[in-house]
Amino acid sequence: ELSWTAEAEKMLGKVPFFVRKKVRKNTDNYAREIGEPVVTADVFRKAKEHLG
């Protein structure tokens, strides 16, 4: 699991709890794919757009 900024964690907190774990995993995987060592708010937004 990658490191997350406080802002990205806050955004994740707005995701319904029953899918939060999956969203975190998918976002981590997306960040790795694009070469990001940390999940930022920008990476979170891009993952959301990319993953739907």
Score class of each variant (00 low, 15 high):
residue 4 W to M: 00
residue 21 K to I: 10
residue 21 K to V: 11
residue 29 N to H: 11
residue 23 V to W: 10
residue 20 R to H: 03
residue 14 K to F: 09
residue 38 V to F: 07
residue 44 F to A: 02
residue 38 V to M: 11
residue 24 R to P: 00
residue 28 D to V: 08
residue 24 R to L: 04
residue 7 E to P: 05
residue 3 S to A: 12
residue 19 V to C: 10
residue 45 R to G: 05
residue 4 W to F: 00
residue 9 E to I: 15
residue 24 R to I: 04
residue 25 K to C: 06
residue 52 G to D: 11
residue 37 P to L: 13
residue 2 L to V: 09
residue 37 P to R: 10
residue 2 L to G: 04
residue 24 R to N: 02
residue 26 N to L: 15
residue 11 M to N: 03
residue 39 V to H: 00
residue 27 T to N: 02
residue 15 V to K: 03
residue 3 S to N: 10
residue 44 F to C: 02
residue 33 E to K: 10
residue 6 A to P: 12
residue 31 A to R: 01
residue 24 R to V: 03
residue 3 S to E: 14
residue 45 R to N: 10
residue 39 V to T: 02
residue 40 T to D: 05
residue 51 L to W: 15
residue 40 T to G: 03
residue 12 L to W: 03
residue 34 I to P: 00
residue 41 A to R: 07
residue 2 L to F: 05
residue 36 E to S: 12
residue 18 F to K: 15
residue 43 V to W: 02
residue 10 K to P: 00
residue 28 D to T: 08
residue 43 V to R: 01
residue 27 T to H: 02
residue 49 E to H: 11
residue 2 L to D: 03
residue 20 R to E: 02
residue 21 K to Q: 15
residue 34 I to K: 08
residue 9 E to Y: 08
residue 42 D to H: 08
residue 35 G to N: 08
residue 49 E to I: 12
residue 15 V to L: 15
residue 5 T to D: 07
residue 37 P to I: 13
residue 9 E to C: 09
residue 29 N to Y: 08
residue 13 G to T: 11
residue 12 L to E: 00
residue 11 M to Y: 05
residue 20 R to L: 04
residue 31 A to P: 00
residue 39 V to D: 00
residue 22 K to M: 14
residue 42 D to M: 08
residue 46 K to E: 08
residue 28 D to W: 03
residue 30 Y to E: 01
residue 52 G to K: 12
residue 31 A to K: 01
residue 50 H to W: 13
residue 49 E to P: 07
residue 30 Y to N: 01
residue 6 A to E: 14
residue 12 L to I: 05
residue 14 K to G: 07
residue 8 A to N: 00
residue 9 E to P: 00
residue 11 M to K: 04
residue 11 M to T: 02
residue 27 T to K: 02
residue 12 L to N: 00
residue 43 V to F: 05
residue 48 K to L: 14
residue 3 S to F: 14
residue 50 H to D: 06
residue 51 L to I: 10
residue 48 K to P: 03
residue 33 E to T: 10
residue 51 L to P: 06
residue 34 I to N: 12
residue 45 R to L: 15
residue 15 V to T: 06
residue 30 Y to I: 03
residue 10 K to N: 10
residue 42 D to Y: 07
residue 29 N to P: 01
residue 1 E to K: 10
residue 24 R to E: 03
residue 31 A to C: 06
residue 20 R to P: 00
residue 37 P to Q: 11
residue 19 V to F: 09
residue 52 G to H: 13
residue 39 V to W: 00
residue 36 E to I: 08
residue 12 L to P: 00
residue 30 Y to S: 01
residue 8 A to S: 04
residue 47 A to W: 12
residue 47 A to V: 05
residue 9 E to F: 09
residue 23 V to G: 01
residue 7 E to Q: 07
residue 33 E to N: 11
residue 23 V to I: 09
residue 32 R to F: 06
residue 33 E to Q: 12
residue 20 R to N: 02
residue 22 K to D: 11
residue 26 N to Y: 15
residue 44 F to P: 01
residue 22 K to A: 13
residue 22 K to N: 13
residue 27 T to Y: 10
residue 3 S to Q: 14
residue 27 T to V: 15
residue 50 H to A: 14
residue 43 V to A: 03
residue 33 E to F: 11
residue 40 T to L: 01
residue 38 V to L: 08
residue 29 N to E: 12
residue 44 F to N: 00
residue 43 V to S: 02
residue 28 D to L: 05
residue 9 E to K: 11
residue 45 R to K: 11
residue 39 V to R: 01
residue 38 V to S: 06
residue 17 F to D: 09
residue 41 A to Q: 05
residue 34 I to F: 10
residue 50 H to F: 11
residue 15 V to R: 03
residue 14 K to Q: 12
residue 10 K to V: 12
residue 22 K to L: 14
residue 31 A to M: 02
residue 9 E to S: 07
residue 19 V to S: 13
residue 51 L to G: 11
residue 26 N to A: 15
residue 51 L to Y: 15
residue 33 E to A: 13
residue 50 H to K: 12
residue 13 G to C: 10
residue 9 E to V: 11
residue 31 A to Y: 00
residue 18 F to G: 12
residue 4 W to L: 01
residue 45 R to A: 09
residue 1 E to C: 09
residue 27 T to G: 02
residue 38 V to R: 06
residue 13 G to Q: 14
residue 52 G to S: 13
residue 10 K to G: 10
residue 3 S to T: 14
residue 6 A to T: 10
residue 40 T to W: 01
residue 39 V to F: 00
residue 8 A to E: 01
residue 16 P to F: 05
residue 1 E to G: 13
residue 48 K to T: 13
residue 28 D to I: 08
residue 48 K to Y: 13
residue 32 R to D: 03
residue 52 G to E: 13
residue 33 E to P: 00
residue 17 F to K: 11
residue 29 N to T: 11
residue 43 V to T: 05
residue 22 K to Y: 13
residue 5 T to K: 02
residue 25 K to E: 14
residue 43 V to M: 04
residue 32 R to A: 06
residue 2 L to I: 15
residue 46 K to L: 09
residue 30 Y to F: 09
residue 6 A to W: 09
residue 36 E to P: 00
residue 40 T to V: 01
residue 4 W to E: 00
residue 51 L to A: 10
residue 6 A to D: 13
residue 32 R to E: 04
residue 21 K to R: 12
residue 44 F to W: 04
residue 21 K to L: 13
residue 41 A to I: 08
residue 16 P to M: 04
residue 32 R to M: 08
residue 3 S to H: 14
residue 7 E to L: 06
residue 24 R to G: 02
residue 41 A to V: 10
residue 5 T to C: 03
residue 34 I to V: 10
residue 26 N to I: 15
residue 33 E to R: 10
residue 33 E to I: 09
residue 15 V to Y: 15
residue 43 V to L: 07
residue 37 P to H: 13
residue 35 G to I: 02
residue 41 A to Y: 05
residue 23 V to K: 02
residue 23 V to H: 05
residue 14 K to L: 12
residue 33 E to V: 10
residue 43 V to K: 03
residue 35 G to Y: 04
residue 17 F to C: 07
residue 30 Y to A: 02
residue 5 T to V: 03
residue 20 R to V: 04
residue 31 A to Q: 00
residue 40 T to Y: 02
residue 15 V to S: 04
residue 29 N to I: 10
residue 5 T to R: 02
